[in-house]
Every structure is written in structure tokens, then in C-alpha cells.
């Protein structure tokens, strides 16, 4: 996946190198600007079994800042924010690959370097007894619970980097 480009970023940014579970890595450019989650909306996406995006709804496009064309065919980790601990995503994958639903609070990275906060549910799509992909639905989180999760993630990141 390509590095994030300074010309796409809005505001002052910091640069990080992220390495994903499949061994690939890229530069991400991150600002402190939050895009508030709109009331009443659900962000919906689907991926294949390898986590490659196959479907996004309009709310996904609006909140991520990417166009639909930029998203389809990309790994879902295009949204991964450097403040998220690796262990959270490992837990997500371990859970859904075993056929169960995963739920959790997530800080997502936008194309413009900003972020948005969600409560995410990820579910395996089971057809004729086989997992054929995953559906992810994100909604507006409780502020209080989100802040609690962010504090925990910061601690987990410290431990991961220790």
C-alpha cells in the first residue's frame, strides 16, 4: 500500500511508520483533528477473507475521506491509526476467524490525517458453513466508554513499544 501523501493532509502532522500483520509497511501522516461521528449513521463495509475491502456504504466514504474507488480492493487496515495497539487487531482477527463476532472501540485514521472514533462490530459472513468474508458495522460510541478505551490503548501501546 502507498505511503500517505503530505498534499492530502489537513493541518500539522506527525509521521509514523506502521507495519501491518502481513509484513507490509507504510508511512502514515497523523494530525490531532477529530471528525465528529454523525448522529444516526452506521458505517458499513465488507471484506473478503483476507481483509480486502469489497463493499463500502456512503457513510464509510464520507467518514474516511477516501473515494469509493480508492477503498475497494485495499486492505481494511488502510484505516489503522498508530494510536491503536496491535493486540486489539490481533484479538479482532482471532475472534472473527473462529466464527465469532468481535466488538470494540476503535480510533480510525482518515485520508486527511485526522481521525474518527467508533464502536465497531465485525462479523464473519458464513455461507453453507464456510466463512466467505467479513461485515463490519461501526456506530457512534459512548464518549465516556471511548475515552476509557483510548486510555487502555495508550497503556497497551506503551507495553508493546517497551
Amino acid at each position: 500500500m502507498e505511503n500517505m501523501r503530505p498534499e492530502d493532509i489537513v493541518g500539522e502532522y506527525q509521521e509514523y511508520e506502521l507495519t501491518y500483520y502481513d509484513g507490509t509497511s507504510r508511512k502514515v501522516l497523523v494530525t490531532d483533528i477529530e471528525t465528529p461521528y454523525p448522529d444516526g449513521k452506521l458505517i458499513v463495509s465488507r471484506t473478503d477473507t483476507a481483509g480486502i475491502i469489497t463493499h463500502v456504504n456512503q457513510a464509510f466514504v464520507d467518514m474516511s475521506g477516501y473515494t469509493r474507488e480508492e477503498l475497494i480492493g485495499q486492505p481494511h487496515y488502510i484505516l489503522r491509526h498508530p494510536d491503536m495497539p496491535r493486540a486489539a487487531f490481533k484479538d479482532l482477527w482471532d475472534t472473527v476467524q473462529s466464527g465469532k463476532k468481535w466488538e470494540g472501540y476503535v480510533k480510525n485514521l482518515r485520508k486527511d490525517g485526522g481521525y474518527y472514533l467508533v464502536f465497531a462490530s465485525v462479523l464473519p459472513n458464513i455461507r453453507d458453513g464456510k466463512i466467505v468474508g467479513y461485515t463490519s458495522v461501526r456506530r457512534k460510541p459512548s464518549r465516556e466508554k471511548m475515552e476509557e478505551a483510548l486510555r487502555l490503548y495508550a497503556k497497551m501501546r506503551e507495553d508493546e513499544n517497551a
Binding site: 465485525v122 459472513n125 461485515t135 458495522v137
Partner: peptide
Amino acid sequence: AEFMIDLMDAI
């Protein structure tokens, strides 16, 4: 229909 069911199950 399966997609809608997955969506309902997710939430």
C-alpha cells in the same frame, strides 16, 4: 437477504 441478516446480527 444474507447481507441484511449479517448487518442485523452485527448490531
